[in-house]
């Protein structure tokens, strides 16, 4: 059994890779950071008895994605799981960011995820159940001012995942959308959690717990996973309240937290 993971050298990618290895999956890891891939490969090989392949790949580049799957073919690997973790966000308002940066969010979070998911499905082992994990976000539940493009891109992934799951259900494929709130992955993320104070603390779920439950829920055939009871409650509010009201509430909250956060990061 082999799992393909994009964005594998980031905090969530590493945690999911370790969890897949613990479950006995061989790994095919990809990321834009060659050094990062090498480090997590070593970390996994020293802890788990699985095979780990790595290849550097910018998932927004069609040629590199083609090369990635050519390498998977060349090794005679058929995939049993795909975890699309690669994604980005740039903090700040729409007009405060260059248009290219804004479009990068769409290119990476949406276009690249679709490209790799499509290719992964073509390279799946059809003799067994195939599992797809798409990393969406709790942000997918709301229109979020100052994170407008990011939140909308994650909404796209959520709706896409749920629809794709239905499409492929009879082909022995499950698709799970992971919708986490803050994760303790980077210093910037930790600063963000600290800046949100109490809300940051109660919405943050321990990284290995998120990884463990993501895999177990995927294997159990679930459609979505939102880590943390508070976050699931917040997601319900997102469904009940009018979108413009949510946007107003979130704007007031985010602009204060972001000011503090960017202050910390600076």
């Amino acid at each position: 059994m082999t799992a393909l993971i994009t964005g594998a050298s980031g905090g969530l990618g590493r945690a999911l890779a370790a969890e897949c290895a613990a479950k006995g999956y061989d790994l095919f890891l990809t990321d834009i950071s060659e050094q990062g891939l090498l480090e997590i490969k070593h970390g996994i090989l020293r802890q788990y008895d699985v095979a780990v392949h790595t290849q550097v790949c910018d998932v927004t580049n069609p040629r590199e994605v083609a090369d990635l799957f050519a390498a998977i073919d060349a090794r005679g690997i058929e995939l049993n799981m795909f975890l699309g973790v690669a994604g980005i966000d740039f903090e700040g308002g729409f007009t405060q960011r260059g248009c290219d940066q804004i479009l990068d969010i769409v290119n990476i979070n949406i276009a690249a995820t679709l490209r790799v998911t499509h290719a992964a499905l073509e390279h799946r082992d059809t003799s067994q159940k195939f599992n797809v994990v798409i990393v969406s976000s709790l942000a997918s539940q709301y229109p979020i001012p100052l994170k407008a493009t990011y939140a909308a891109s994650k909404r796209f992934l959520l709706d896409f995942s749920i629809a794709l799951r239905q499409e492929l259900m009879h082909d022995n494929v499950n698709v799970l959308a992971l919708c986490p709130a803050g994760l303790t992955t980077t210093q910037q993320a930790l600063d963000g959690i600290a800046a949100q104070g109490f809300m940051g603390r109660v919405t943050t779920v321990s990284l290995p717990t998120v990884a463990r439950k993501t895999i177990s829920k995927t294997l159990a055939g679930k459609a979505t996973y939102t880590p943390g009871a508070v976050n699931r409650l917040l997601a319900v509010f997102g469904k009940l309240l009018p979108k413009s009201l949510i946007a107003r509430l979130l704007y007031n909250r985010w602009s204060a937290a972001q000011e503090k956060w960017l202050d910390v990061s600076a």
């Binding site: 050094q35 480090e39 070593h42 930790l190 959690i193 943050t204 990284l207 290995p208």
Partner: peptide
């Protein structure tokens, strides 16, 4: 105070 990992995932 939060669980974080190194580049090796430790």
């Amino acid at each position: 105070n939060w669980y974080t990992t190194t580049h090796e995932g430790y």
